[in-house]
Design a protein around this nucleic acid. Sequence first.
DNA 1: CTGTTAGCGCCTTCAT
DNA 2: ATGAAGGCGCTAACAG
Lengths: 345, 345
Amino acid sequence: MASGKKQVTMATIAEEAGLGRTTVGYVLNGKAAERGIPEQTAQRVFEIAERLDYVPNEAARDLRTQRSGLIGVLFQSLGAEWPVRVIQGLQDVLFQTEDYHPLITAHGHDPALEEREIQFLLRRRVEAIICSATAMSDTFRTILKRRIPLVFIGHAMPEMPEASSVLFDDRKAIKAGVRRLVEQGRRRIAYLGWDFPEGYFQNRHDGFREALEESGLECREKWFEIVLHGESPEAAVRRMFSGSGQRPDAVFSGLWRMALGALETIEDLGLRLPEDVALITLEDHLACRLKRIGISTVHQPIEEIGRQAARTALDLIASPHSGAIRRLIYDCEVIDRRTTIGQGR
Amino acid sequence: MASGKKQVTMATIAEEAGLGRTTVGYVLNGKAAERGIPEQTAQRVFEIAERLDYVPNEAARDLRTQRSGLIGVLFQSLGAEWPVRVIQGLQDVLFQTEDYHPLITAHGHDPALEEREIQFLLRRRVEAIICSATAMSDTFRTILKRRIPLVFIGHAMPEMPEASSVLFDDRKAIKAGVRRLVEQGRRRIAYLGWDFPEGYFQNRHDGFREALEESGLECREKWFEIVLHGESPEAAVRRMFSGSGQRPDAVFSGLWRMALGALETIEDLGLRLPEDVALITLEDHLACRLKRIGISTVHQPIEEIGRQAARTALDLIASPHSGAIRRLIYDCEVIDRRTTIGQGR
DNA sequence: CTGTTAGCGCCTTCAT
DNA sequence: ATGAAGGCGCTAACAG
């Protein structure tokens, strides 16, 4: 393989031990007892294996057993904070199984690469694929056609009802955040959202409107800003606070980046946080947690998405004929930092 | 495999096309021309493959060719910022090859898991392993014994001269940082380091002393603080600034986390940055780049470590008998932010 | 131009 | 209690 002398295989061990391959195979797979192979023989086999630095060949095993023990994991990019945390959740679960490992890939928003990477996963015969939703790609269809369990995380893909998904209950989180603002006496709550090309965040936008309604507040269009892709949040915030009429006394942001922009802009306008304006955001990013930034957030446990996605994949592998599984992660926690009136944290 | 009808293999295609497996095999591997197979036949094979959703089986291919096309990548944790950026660099290079893919793993500082994961990589017959150095583990010896190229990143492992490595030239970076401080008129420069258990950062500590020496400054022990594992940087900084004697007029920090602590503490002490004290750090972490934090840094291109590590691995695979390759990444750039006197950025 | 053949290393049924 | 044998899907040397 790497070089040098020949590989050590089960045959090598069998020969060395003066046994048949079969016996060795059973011993090495921990089925010695089951086949009535004497303890002593097993012992000897293990010793020889150790001495010879035997390492089983997964390719051969996969080929023979028609399974790979791999779960494909496909992200657009690993650069953001959340993919990494999702992966940690995945590993929490997969490390326990002993049987499954993630095969992690990213495509950097490049459709050609995406296709290639999916092919890669298929060639390796991954038994399930966990991925973040992207623009509809035909390649996903290929996955389903081969009847490989597909689990979307982060956002659902409504065009693919056959696929499973594990998502945050964003509406619930938004309501919790808005409720906190209302508790703190805010009545003029603005919204700062982002217009991702595929409209993935529609759910958040709608959730905000619903939340206001539930609190008996009106949603003024002037205070409902959807920042376009490529546009800076700063402009949106300035617009929101411009004019001589009433100003918002709170801003709910759907993304941490926008919240950071809002923080800057609001202070630039000479307003004080949280006295004049409160600010709260989804996505409890590291930046929000830093003492000098301290943006209050509705914290959602990203690792839990990973854990549930792993479990979902395993469930689907175990019973391939069950329908799609859809899970919502309801957990969320409002964390008061500098930008809301809380006891801090 | 997943379920349902039988797998589509080359044999299926051969049968469907009324050809021999060999012919199909050559066509599918793009060696039709080389073997003088008529364009038309090739065309037909491709069509059938497409129609049948044929996906080659890597396990079979690996078994046959005795290579896996996988490069193992092992981190302690993916949670920090730099592993992810290293991976992006790796992918930059590997995506170009078409032939190699990373197989990414982490073990969360758990030696038992580390061992298991290395076993996992070996069973999959990765052709090289790229990993961040940890406490000396015997498992690494196993890797070398099997003559699998091993590339350390981040820190060298002096105990293993047979292993390759790709590292930053921290000394050079530190000198650049110190030089900038000196240019700005600082003469009483303190150092804030961290005592990682294995003493990996000794290199940085020494580099700082050297840098001072080169600038003709003395290194006062009071201003040379190595924060112990688990201790807070705050205490160290307070110590450094305590007493009635002279105070440092600049702090060089070896880690962004410490720099952040220093920033807080220095301001808590009623000192102004950068007027009273300048602050500069290694590790250009996101937190340093945020406008409200704005810690000046000596920026090192982490992605480049990934790229070079990938190239090193590929080189070693290509010529397994060459000795260890050691690469230093010299690039670094001093970035002035709020905590030094620069034109900002 | 195309086919036959012999494995790669492992699992597993069947025979002894 | 142990072994022989066949085959998973693919490649490549060797015939035709």
